[in-house]
Design a protein around this nucleic acid. Structure first.
Lengths: 200, 200
DNA sequence: GATTATTAACTGCATATTCAATTAAAATGA
DNA sequence: TCATTTTAATTGAATATGCAGTTAATAATC
C-alpha cells in the first residue's frame, strides 16, 4: 500500500537522500534515479517536487549552508572571562567537529560548481561573508577588551577564514594519516600569536 | 586530405584540447566528443591513444603537475644576499603568476576527484609533498643564515602550503572584485612575521 | 470534488567504448 | 630507386547504457 507524505516531509527526505548519494558517489555519480531508488520512490516524484535537477541542487546548497551557519556551535557569549571566551571560539574554529559539520567532499564539490554556476557562487559568497563578518565583530570586541591587538579586523577575519579553508587541503593532501587536529593546533597557535602581536 | 601525425605529436594535442575543454566546460561538461571535435579528429582516435577516459585523465593530471613543478619559477639561488633571496621566493609564492600556472578551476576539479579517486589522490599527495619539502629545505637554509627563526621547519612549510591553498578560496569567495594580490600581500606579511618571530 | 502525491511508460539525447574497415607512413628487400 | 610488406593512424558505423525530463494516468487526501 502506498503511503503519501506531504511535500513538507517528502522534500527534506529527498534532499537528505541527495546528500547521502553525493557523499557516496560524488557529483558525477549522482543521478535522480539513484536518489529516488535510495528512498524507494519514483524518479518522477523528484521532478514533481523540484521541477529540475538544478533547482534541487540549489535547495541542497541552501540547506547545507544553513547547517553550516548553525550559530549554536560558535556562540560562547555565556563565558564571562574574556580570555576564556576568546579561546573557546578559536578552539571550535580549529576543531574537527566544526570542519566536519558538512561532509567536506560535498562542500568541496559545490565549491567547484561555483566556478561555473553564478547562483551557487553567490550563495557561498554570502556564507563566507557571514562567517568573516561574524569573526570580525568578535575580533573588534576582543580587541577592545585587550585580549588581542588588531588594527584591521576585516583583514584579520579574512585571514582566519583563509587559514581554515587551507586546513581542508592540508588534511587531504599533506596529513600523513595524522588526525586533523594535529596540524590544526599548530595553525591555531600561529594565528593566535599573530593576533596578539599586532600583526594585523 | 588526411594528415597523419605521430603519437608523439597527437597525444599532447589531445591533452591540450582536453585541458581547454575542461577550462571552458568543467568536469561535467567535458566529453570525448568535444575534445575530439575541437581539434578536428574522430572520437575513436582518443580511445585509440588512451584506451579509456580514465587513463587520459591521469595523463593530464601528470602533465599539469609537471607544469606546476617547473622549478624555474621558484629557483633564485643566483641571488647572493640571503635576505633578498628569501624575499624573492616568498614574493613568487604569493604572486598571481605562481597561483595561476595551471588554471585554478582545473586544478580544483582534480582536487575534488581525488576524494574518490585513489590514483589522482596519490599524485597530488606527491606533488604537495614535493612543494612542502622544497620549502622546508629553503627554510632550514634561511634559518641557518639567521634570516628567519624556525624550530620546526616541516610545520612551517606545511603552514605555508596551507596558507597558499587557502588563498585560492579567498580569491574565489571573499575577494570583492579586488585583485588576487591585495589580500595575498597581507597573508604574506603575517607569514613572514611569524617566521621571523620564531612562532614555528 | 478538487487538489496533491505518486507511478508507469516513454522520449530524446549524450555518453564511452567496440569493432571492422580504410588510409597513410615507415620499413624492408630487390 | 622502386615495389612490397608491415605497422600505425584514422575513421565510420554500431552498441549499450544512463541520463534528465515529459505526459498521462491512478491513488490518496482534504
Amino acid at each position: 500500500m502506498r503511503k503519501n507524505k506531504s511535500a513538507a516531509l517528502r522534500k527534506p527526505d529527498i534532499l537528505e537522500s541527495y546528500y547521502q548519494v553525493l557523499i557516496q558517489e560524488g557529483l558525477e555519480g549522482t543521478s535522480i534515479s539513484k536518489i529516488a531508488n535510495r528512498i524507494g520512490i519514483h524518479p518522477s516524484l523528484i521532478i514533481h517536487y523540484f521541477k529540475n535537477k538544478e533547482n534541487m541542487k540549489l535547495e541542497l546548497v541552501d540547506l547545507l549552508i544553513e547547517k553550516y551557519q548553525s550559530p549554536a556551535m560558535i556562540n560562547f557569549d555565556h563565558i564571562e572571562d574574556d580570555e576564556e571566551h576568546f579561546n573557546a571560539i578559536i578552539d571550535v574554529l580549529f576543531s574537527f567537529k566544526w570542519n566536519r559539520t558538512v561532509d567536506p567532499g560535498v562542500h568541496f564539490g559545490f565549491y567547484y560548481l561555483s566556478l561555473r554556476n553564478e547562483q551557487i557562487l553567490a550563495r557561498f559568497r554570502v556564507m563566507f561573508k557571514w562567517l568573516r563578518d561574524y569573526l570580525r565583530e568578535k575580533l573588534i570586541y576582543f580587541n577592545d577588551k585587550g585580549v588581542i591587538r588588531v588594527k584591521d579586523a576585516t583583514q584579520a577575519a579574512d585571514y582566519m577564514v583563509t587559514l581554515m579553508e587551507g586546513l581542508e587541503f592540508h588534511s587531504q593532501f599533506l596529513a600523513n594519516g595524522e588526525h586533523f587536529d594535529d596540524f590544526a593546533q599548530t595553525a591555531r597557535k600561529v594565528l593566535v600569536s599573530a593576533l596578539k602581536n599586532g600583526d594585523f
